[in-house]
Computed example of a mutant assay.
Amino acid sequence: MDIGVTVGDSIERLEATSADFDFAEFGLSEGVDPATDVDGNRLEAALEETGTDLCVHLPFKQVVVTPVPEINDAIVAHQTRLLEWAGGVGAEKAVLHGTARNPHETDLRPAFAEQVRAIDEAGEAAGVEVVLENVGHQKRGFPLSVLGDIARDTGTAVCFDVGHAYMEDGDDGVERFLRGYADLISHLHVHDARSRGDTHIPIGAGEIDYSILEDRLAGFDGTVAVEVFTDDVSLLTDTAGRVADALGEPF
């Protein structure tokens, strides 16, 4: 199991926070052309200096599917271009939010599955594993069970965001998803949350029962990204240690 840290779209944050981790998860903003807008030389140097591997987060504002086929084709083309860049800079995984213009339109789910399958194939061609993230607590995110079923049907790996699942359906939602889909999970996003709306806070500062991971993900050998919105390395490493303990692994 490798434990990393999310750094948003900031190479400076990568430089400042990643040295204690196995990898950094670098975010791509909507509308950014990474081939020209990301300083590839500085990114490469930062990864080498901190001794970290690379994952990327695809643009989270870009939905995966709409009711319009031509727009869907453009979305796949856009994500393919980003995945080709990611493969070129050595990224191992790419996180994709499971979103739609209106995820409650059940007629849109087959098209969503086709979009996910096409983006996953583009990732495979680029040498990058696409991992589909649950964001069902957001208005454009597919519910947990729908996302899990589509990931299974399309053969796509999952990025399970524990905090997002808690915000959608509490500890019961976390446990239920792990019970049904743990075998699909390749990547975890970990942070704490409170039902009043606080999220992406250090583990232990919120309400999530992380012992659920011990029960359902024992022996997990994928990647874990600490997604706590702070540059305080001691808080980041404390959260990493807590999740490692929950998974029965050292940090």
Results as ranks from 00 to 15, higher is better:
40 G>R: 15
205 A>H: 05
187 H>A: 05
207 E>V: 04
50 T>G: 04
200 H>W: 03
99 T>W: 09
99 T>Y: 09
57 H>G: 09
87 G>R: 07
51 G>N: 11
93 K>Q: 15
155 G>R: 11
210 Y>N: 03
15 E>V: 01
123 G>M: 14
160 F>P: 00
232 D>I: 14
235 L>R: 04
208 I>R: 00
82 L>F: 09
58 L>P: 03
240 A>T: 03
66 T>D: 10
194 R>V: 15
126 A>Y: 13
212 I>W: 04
199 T>E: 06
145 S>L: 12
139 K>E: 06
99 T>I: 12
16 A>G: 01
147 L>D: 01
87 G>P: 08
47 L>I: 08
23 F>L: 08
180 G>L: 09
61 K>C: 09
77 A>Q: 12
71 I>W: 07
11 I>Q: 02
33 D>E: 12
28 L>P: 02
198 D>V: 01
45 A>L: 05
44 E>S: 13
214 E>V: 07
124 E>S: 14
120 D>L: 12
86 A>S: 03
12 E>W: 09
116 V>L: 11
226 V>W: 00
175 E>T: 07
83 L>A: 05
65 V>L: 08
77 A>D: 12
129 E>Y: 13
129 E>V: 15
155 G>Q: 11
115 Q>D: 14
122 A>D: 11
223 T>Y: 13
237 T>G: 06
141 G>W: 01
116 V>P: 00
121 E>H: 15
170 G>Q: 01
233 V>N: 11
190 V>I: 11
